[in-house]
Design a protein around this nucleic acid. Structure first.
Lengths: 235, 235
DNA sequence: ATAATAGTGTCTATTAGACAATATCCT
DNA sequence: AGGATATTGTCTAATAGACACTATTAT
């Protein structure tokens, strides 16, 4: 049953740039495409937005589509925080026809990232260090990646949730610093960085748990987010 | 000649939130719709993205579509700076069917905004003070407006181009301050604000022109942007 | 002189950066 | 004791906010 329109239409897709921190480096999840176009190339998880249902139902939201595709192509369960990144629609970006892609980024902590497995449309799925990625990506995904990295690099400075979503729920000050360093691609003086950290504790954003974590040196205090402000979006 | 597809597709539109400063207030341009849906309602200039041309040509870019629609519906000439804002695609936002709208915002100085005239699809076009707008807008344009205002309010703090685009090419320190106040919706201590202004002059971002502008009190020094950095997008 | 606006200076509190120092654990 | 890491402190420079002050024009 074909669909007929008076004017030509575009396809709308979502692409999801999923980040985590592994080996103290910012890593991004790529899927190896099983089918053309760009068969064999690495690309972000993503796919077509469901727009069926006629005038009344009209299909799923963009965000739901992104979450669905992310789950289908990675095996991840549960709610994963997504934020809309940018919409890419340059003519010619997809050889099959005009495709408008609404890109999202998502952040998960390393222990969640460990059990990723490739979905049906992919021959493989794995994490790549964003700083040593020299693969030629499918479509315009290289531009999307650059946009996403710039976004979280800029936003982490005034929106600490970026760091918290990349961390497990309990973490040390050093781990918090390492996440910042991995995202920004620079190193910080630990003394000065700790002042910011102490301020967050004093402001009630973080709470010390009294517990200690063993390290190669002195044991480190463990902290967690003081809940109640899980609803964010300050921007 | 109808277009037939195997799967249903969405329409892709652009909407443009055009801002200026008039009467020391942040104002937004709205068009009164001549045709259904939302006939008679006020809405942003915008329209369908041209996606014709088959597999190879595929139509126009999103940004070109936004610029074209803005020109068609306002009579504005020349290049106007646009920045992509967010993509709105909730099912049901348009009663005609699934429509994904890529929203842009644009900024012009007041003297350009004076000669706006309604295009063919509109029965009227005029500026509205964003702080005293209580019209029910078409589609989800109320949400788009709120998103746009929040965006420029946040961005003007670290991206002074927002202010410069709302000003004529030559302006006084007081006018620069008034633009900030109109965008942020607060007043600033002129002494402290002027320190920021002086720093921009010292840093070579602005140049004093030596000329004076008459005011009700002492004449004010005129400044302009030190060019060469017209290519922005620091973000 | 006075109203009105332009423009400067001063004090304090907050914050970032460079760098020194102390504390705690393991071997 | 010595290596490794956690944790705190000190000095300086930059910046923001509150507020007092001077300068220049028109009437």
């Amino acid at each position: 049953m074909p669909y007929t329109y008076k004017y030509p239409k575009a396809d709308v897709t979502v692409d999801i740039v999923l980040f985590t921190i592994l080996d103290n480096a910012l890593q991004v999840l790529l899927i190896q495409r099983r089918d053309p176009p760009f068969k064999g190339c690495w690309a972000f998880p993503g796919g077509f937005v469901n727009v069926t249902g006629g005038r009344t139902k009209q299909g799923e939201t963009l965000e739901k589509a992104a979450l669905r595709e992310l789950r289908e192509e990675t095996g991840l369960k549960g709610n994963i925080y997504l934020e809309q990144l940018y919409t890419f629609g340059r003519p010619g970006r997809d050889p099959r026809g005009r495709v408008i892609s609404v890109a999202y980024y998502a952040l998960i902590s390393a222990h969640l990232g460990a059990n990723i497995k490739a979905g049906d449309d992919a021959s493989d799925a794995r994490w790549w260090d964003v700083n040593s990625l020299d693969e030629k990506l499918a479509f315009d995904h290289d531009v999307i990646l650059e946009t996403a990295v710039l976004r979280i690099r800029g936003k982490i400075d005034y929106f600490p949730q970026i760091a918290f979503r990349l961390l497990p729920s309990v973490f040390t000050a050093a781990e918090f610093q390492q996440v910042h360093e991995a995202v920004k691609g620079v190193t910080f003086d630990s003394s000065n960085f700790r002042k910011r950290f102490r301020r967050m504790v004093a402001d009630g954003v973080l709470v010390g748990l009294g517990l200690k974590k063993k390290t190669a040196g002195a044991p480190a205090q463990l902290y967690s987010l003081t809940h109640h402000d899980t609803h964010d979006e300050t921007y």
